[in-house]
């Protein structure tokens, strides 16, 4: 891995459009999104429900087809196009390099398969023929995530939420990936367990030189994890930049509102929250407002915002904002 000047980004998404259907209405859940992810970094992706962050993750994983734009991984085009009826399989090289950790650890583990089987499956599918070698690898991965090889014969429902998420991580690790897409990996977990999983993801990143695309709605978790952050709103990127810049000097009114709305730091001492400026509810992604899609909730709105959609423009080193007035 070239740490000094990475020539090709690990993941590169260009003008991606992912169509989706909701209650019979077709709309673009991800609309003209471009970004790239460098080796070794943790790119945070934040936004509220309906912003398309999970759809984007699944499109990158090839679970949803895109209607235009492309996705490349280590320079190779991996865009899934057309109908999902007969999805072509990705090459083993791509599959091994790009893995995903899901939000709900219970739903992402086959309830009828043993833990050993669940972690072993990626190896079977990817051509590791030697059974003993597979078992050894499974044991190693389970130990790596802090569970140990003796859990292999048990079933998912015998574990707590945090342990199940560790199993999901072990499965993603078994192919020794370079990039892991983490789709809300701790949101379904209890608070006391969240820290365990975040620490584990951290340790793994250091030990295995992993990169993460870390998706979350939780500002505090992202503040901790991400070195660079993308903010999405109704399918589009509204702001992107280095974490310190974004958290301390956000330019887009939506990013500011998100940061302000997040619950306070309970250790910061006594404070009663002042009432917020009313934002109103998120419009449905199905009928996205014209012009700037945030204009229905924006305090800075002018007639221009209703008429023309602001383009994502550079406002500082690595810092991009899509707002007429930011």
């Amino acid at each position: 891995m070239n740490m000094i000047a990475p020539a090709t980004p690990l993941l590169d998404v260009r003008n991606l459009v992912v169509p989706h259907r909701k209650d019979g209405h077709a709309f673009n859940a991800v609309d003209d999104v471009s970004f790239s992810l460098q080796p070794g970094e943790t790119l945070g992706l934040v936004g509220e429900s309906g912003c398309g962050k999970s759809t984007l993750a699944r499109a990158i994983m090839g679970l949803y087809p895109s209607s235009s734009g492309n996705i490349s991984f280590k320079g190779a085009d991996i865009t899934t196009k057309g109908s999902s009826l007969f999805r072509p399989r990705r090459s083993r090289d791509i599959t091994r390099g790009l893995q995903m950790v899901f939000q709900d650890p219970l739903l992402s583990l086959n309830p009828r398969a043993t833990i050993g089987r669940i972690v072993e499956e990626p190896l079977i599918v990817n051509g590791v023929r030697n059974r003993a070698a597979r078992r050894a690898k499974v044991g190693e991965m389970l130990t790596r995530v802090g569970l140990g090889p003796d859990v292999m014969d048990r079933l998912p429902h015998e574990f707590s939420g945090g342990q199940r998420q560790r199993i999901g991580i072990a499965r993603a690790l078994s192919l020794t990936p370079e990039l892991i897409i983490c789709d809300e990996p701790v949101s379904a977990l209890d608070l006391s367990v969240q820290a365990q999983v975040l620490n584990l993801l951290n340790d793994l990143q250091v030990d295995l030189k992993l990169s993460y695309l870390f998706i979350s709605h939780d500002i505090a978790v992202l503040r901790y994890m991400a070195s660079r952050v993308i903010v999405m709103y109704l399918g589009k990127i509204v702001e992107a930049g280095p974490a310190d810049v974004l958290w301390n000097a956000a330019r887009h009114p939506y990013t500011k509102a998100l940061i302000a709305a997040a619950p306070g730091d309970p250790t910061a001492g006594p404070r009663a929250r002042p009432n917020k400026v009313t934002l109103g509810d998120i419009p449905s992604p199905v009928d996205r407002p014209h012009g700037c899609s945030f204009h229905t909730r924006c305090a800075l709105r002018q007639s221009r915002c209703v008429e023309t959609e602001p383009a994502l423009r550079r406002v500082g080193p690595g810092h991009f904002v899509a707002c007429h007035f930011a």
Partner: peptide
Amino acid sequence: LLNARPHAGQIACGGVRPRLTEITGSV
């Protein structure tokens, strides 16, 4: 519980993240 939550002093900003204080085990 208070320490398990990432808080202001722990922003990574590219550097090595300080470990979160975890509560071991489960409920």
